[in-house]
Amino acid sequence: MIWQIELIILVLVVLFGFGALATKDLLSAAILFGAYSFLLCLLWAIMGAVDVAFTEASVGAGVSTVLIVSAVLRTTRRTDH
């Protein structure tokens, strides 16, 4: 596989991970986590692990964001420092 694409996507995954950690707004963190799982699925697919990519796709796109958002709805939206 073309290693440049792999590197770019890896960098993006790391960026999104840091972004999700760094934002103080929990809803934004949930949304960024969704994008993180998209890119992670792409990374698995590039590496050839199709089953793992499928799992990541269904879990990340389907339910994990919804569960996190609903948990945020029932608790608070701001992190305290």
């Binding site: 089953d51 799992t55 269904s58 389907g62 339910v63």
Partner: peptide, 14 residues
């Protein structure tokens, strides 16, 4: 094809 119980179950739950 790729897939199986876990993935299908998650999509069904979704």
């Amino acid at each position: 094809s790729p897939g199986g119980g876990f993935q299908g179950g998650v999509i069904m739950g979704a």
